[in-house]
Design a protein around this nucleic acid. Sequence first.
DNA 1: GTTAGCATGTAAGGAGTTACATGATTTT
DNA 2: AAAATCATGTAACTCCTTACATGCTAAC
Lengths: 206, 206
Amino acid sequence: MSDHRAGSFGPAEGRTGGKRSGVLELAVLGLLHETPMHGYELRKRLNALLGAFRAFSYGSLYPCLKELLLRGLIADESADDAPRALAGRRSKIVYRMTAEGKERLQDLLAEAGPAAWEDDGFGIRFAFFGQTRADVRLRILEGRRSRLEERMESVRAALARTRERLDSYTLELHKHGLESVEREVRWLNELIASERESGPGANTPT
Amino acid sequence: MSDHRAGSFGPAEGRTGGKRSGVLELAVLGLLHETPMHGYELRKRLNALLGAFRAFSYGSLYPCLKELLLRGLIADESADDAPRALAGRRSKIVYRMTAEGKERLQDLLAEAGPAAWEDDGFGIRFAFFGQTRADVRLRILEGRRSRLEERMESVRAALARTRERLDSYTLELHKHGLESVEREVRWLNELIASERESGPGANTPT
DNA sequence: GTTAGCATGTAAGGAGTTACATGATTTT
DNA sequence: AAAATCATGTAACTCCTTACATGCTAAC
């Protein structure tokens, strides 16, 4: 139910700002794609979107926005008309996506590698499936399924190997974990079937 | 399915070494309580115990062992007879628990607060339920259940609030997440019932 | 006019990972 | 004697959290 971070050490990651590869960047870009927003609201929508299975604090959101700004992926909308300096007191900073930001989002949503199906990244990709190409959706779902099947195999093997010398609570824990994974696999099977059904040529329903 | 770290900022944490509050310390002490072991093997048993739902790398295990050694909770068994220096090449370092370590483990296993029922800590506490007092087991199970019920409530509320303006994939994700939590609650209910049944006076079956 | 909640940020640091570096032991 | 795998360790870095600091705006 947790981490297992993906490898993906970036070869030549264009030195334009900090790094920030993770989930947050995608989530912010994905939300900002629908409509411009300020940080505070973004965080609420973010945590609603991720629905209690993951939460972010301001301490990570604001630095992320700052960096996306530096990298030119988003822009301060309120600074568009009033270029700078005057209009001193504005309490809200409304961010909107730039053209580069949209491009970056498309790139991220087109990824169909481990980053998209590991525990970390899968949830957020799935949440944005509506903006994802149909073939990519299918590859991500299948990737996640085989990832989980691998995991099931290794747990089952470990369970078989050590069955005798395991305390009953530990056994119960493993059984419950295994059933959770099996349940997710069944869910994925349904999703894959329904993706295949609804036209293997259905693209990006923006 | 993820983080939500517990608060618990330790007031006066006895300055004897580094800090290390987390799951690893408990896991190591719990495993070493059964039998002495060296680091490499410990890691394998650890990851088998936690069964794919959590894994640790050497990069965190070895520093943790080093620190537990410094704090006197574990000791280098191979250094017991051969005090030091001679016997230069030993490739394995077998660790065993000290009296202080056992005491610390008992303290950790007696905790029945948030640290024991948040996502982070629950799995490992449950895995060591065999060494935990019956009343503490019950309190932890109930704590976890109400934690999950809270979470269910907030997701359900968010779902009701935004139902109309949610993309069908996001909806599907939330439904699946909610069902996972409901499933865990049912599991907890069964466990709680069976704990209550099997004698409300049943203690520490070491 | 003061409490409550909106809004933005930063500094310090916790918890772990990856990649590297190195040696001992077993298998082929 | 080469290859695999057992075994130990460290340095740098990632990503996020907590706690703090600050001001604006609305409600009572």
